[in-house]
């Protein structure tokens, strides 16, 4: 198995460098960059012509300057670390609890009959509505925020896993039984990989909600973090930094999405090829 199967030789080092170069500097990247440039151009025009209601908008150049000076300061990166840490802890906890729970609900009808109604009553409560009770419940602010992020990612994942399990075709399960699989094989080799696409979708959507909740929670209750700093810039009337904060949150969210997509492709090589 170790030798290459399709007859391709390992590319030489210079080839590999060229491949990496081609991956980042190509027409697709150029298209993306040009749109960002046009967006910044329009923004500049809006500020220049003092468009009504948008007069508080800082100039792109001021924002860029602010961004550079912030990036040089350690405080800015502390906010990044704080926010990412909160996201990861809450998000991972949501997966650790949500995936097994969803699998159990998807597999056992009895278990679902017991648990689904209470789940469906709690699920529509927006995560932000949990903020007061979370602050009261948990001994520290930090724990409350982890909990809120958890709530944001949790319900979506459970729903997705249940869906994923029910999407596996009956024939695949029957085929596996015919082939000699035992119930534990069905679980590990059929149900789990079969629901993996839904689990990854649940993670992607859940990550989006987790960031929503995190920023709201930070603005209300946290010390530090990208959301908190953005809010404090408003109270301090530091308008360029509001925009820097917003863009930072956007970048941090994208980073998480890219990471999840990469993980998803690694975990599901069979879906990558299309």
């Amino acid at each position: 198995m170790s030798q290459s199967m399709n007859g391709e030789r390992r590319p030489a080092k210079s080839d590999r460098l060229k491949k990496i170069f081609d991956k980042f500097f190509n027409i697709e990247t150029l298209r993306g960059v040009s749109t960002v440039a046009v967006f910044c151009g329009l923004w500049q025009l809006v500020v220049y012509y003092e468009v009504p209601y948008l007069m508080y908008l800082p100039r792109p150049l001021d924002v860029a300057k602010k961004a550079i000076s912030s990036a040089a300061a350690a405080d800015y990166w502390v906010d990044w670390v704080l926010s990412l840490l909160r996201i990861f802890i809450g998000f991972i906890a949501a997966q650790v609890v949500g995936i097994p729970l969803g699998l159990a609900m998807g597999i056992s009808r009895t278990f679902k009959e017991f648990t689904f109604p209470i789940f469906e009553i709690l699920r529509p409560i927006p995560p932000i509505a949990w903020i007061p009770i979370a602050i009261l419940f948990w001994p520290t602010r930090e724990l409350s925020i982890y909990f809120l992020v958890f709530i944001g990612a949790f319900y979506i994942q459970v729903i997705n896993v249940i869906q994923g399990v029910s999407n596996i075709s009956l024939n695949q399960k029957l085929a596996a039984y015919s082939l000699g699989a035992k119930p534990k094989d069905i679980f590990w080799r059929i149900l789990l990989p079969g629901s993996l696409p839904s689990i990854v979708t649940g993670m992607t959507v859940g990550m989006g909600v987790a960031w929503n909740v995190l920023i709201a929670a930070e603005m209300i209750a946290a010390q530090g973090g990208l959301g908190r700093t953005t809010w404090e810039s408003y109270t301090n009337h530091n308008i360029p930094f509001i925009v820097v904060g917003m863009v930072s949150i956007g970048l941090a969210g994208s980073l998480c999405s890219v990471l999840l997509r990469w993980l998803g492709n690694r975990a599901m090589p069979w879906t990558k090829k299309f």
Binding site: N171, Q172, L174, A176, S178, G180, W270
Partner: peptide, 26 residues
Amino acid sequence: MVVFQNGALFPWKTVIENITYGPLVQ
């Protein structure tokens, strides 16, 4: 052994992983 009407290969397994599933799982 059953071969199903709409096909029941496991999409997450390669051709050879599908074929060897039976002997390996047993």
